[in-house]
Every structure is written in C-alpha cells, then in structure tokens.
C-alpha cells in the first residue's frame, strides 16, 4: 500500500530543468547553424548531427526522464536496447555496403 511518496523519490528542482532546457535549445541552435550556414563547407554537417543529437537525447533521458535518479536496472535496460539497435544497423550494413 505504498504511497509513492514513502518510497524514495527524487524531486528535481525547477532550476535543473531550466538549465537542461536552455542547453537543449542551445544545442539545437548550434546544430542547425552548423548545417544551415554550411560551417566548414558542410563537412561537419553529419559529424555534428552524430554528436549533438545523441547528446540532446541523453540530456532528455537523464534529466527530464529522471534516468539519473533511477535504479541501475533502468540504465542496463536502455543500454541493451541501444546496443541491439546498433547491432541491427551494423549487421544490416554489412550486407548493404558490401553487396
């Protein structure tokens, strides 16, 4: 009959959320200016997307979705899922790229 409140819960402060939100907005603007203004002649375009997008996703997952405050189990579950997607990508690419 647990109250949710009786189990250990972590109340995240508004400040944290605001900072995360600001970071997300900043990263979005950075990413779009890199690719829209063709910084570096467009060479950095996909590299930026490869780094910045996962970073943004991680911010959402860790702070907005509270993964930072959850049990290890949740992190393992997420890692396994991501690994499987990456393996699916890799093994399929092994066919498509070398066909």
């Amino acid at each position: 009959m647990a109250h949710e409140a009786t189990e250990e819960i972590h109340v995240v402060s508004y400040t944290t959320y605001t900072l995360v939100w600001a970071a997300l907005v900043g990263l979005t603007l950075l990413l779009s200016s890199i690719s829209l203004l063709h910084m570096g002649g467009g060479r950095w375009n996909s590299l930026a997307a490869f780094i910045i997008s996962p970073l943004k996703a991680a911010l959402v997952v860790f702070f907005f979705m509270h993964l930072k405050y959850e049990k290890t189990l949740f992190r393992i579950m997420l890692m396994v899922t991501l690994c499987i997607i990456i393996i699916f990508l890799g093994l399929t690419f092994l066919d498509v790229a070398l066909r």
């Binding site: 393996i87 093994l91 092994l94 066919d95 070398l98």
Partner: peptide, 22 residues
C-alpha cells in the same frame, strides 16, 4: 538469437561478407 536473422537469406543475394558472419 537476435544476431542470426540473415541465415534465412543466404540465397537471396546477400553480400558474401554478411553471409559468412551470419
């Protein structure tokens, strides 16, 4: 078990590298 799926596709024109790995 989630890493072997393409063994159903060996004769489909899959790349040789992929066929070997699978």
């Amino acid at each position: 078990g989630s890493l072997v799926w393409a063994h159903h596709m060996f004769t489909s024109g899959l790349s040789d590298a992929a066929a070997t790995v699978f």
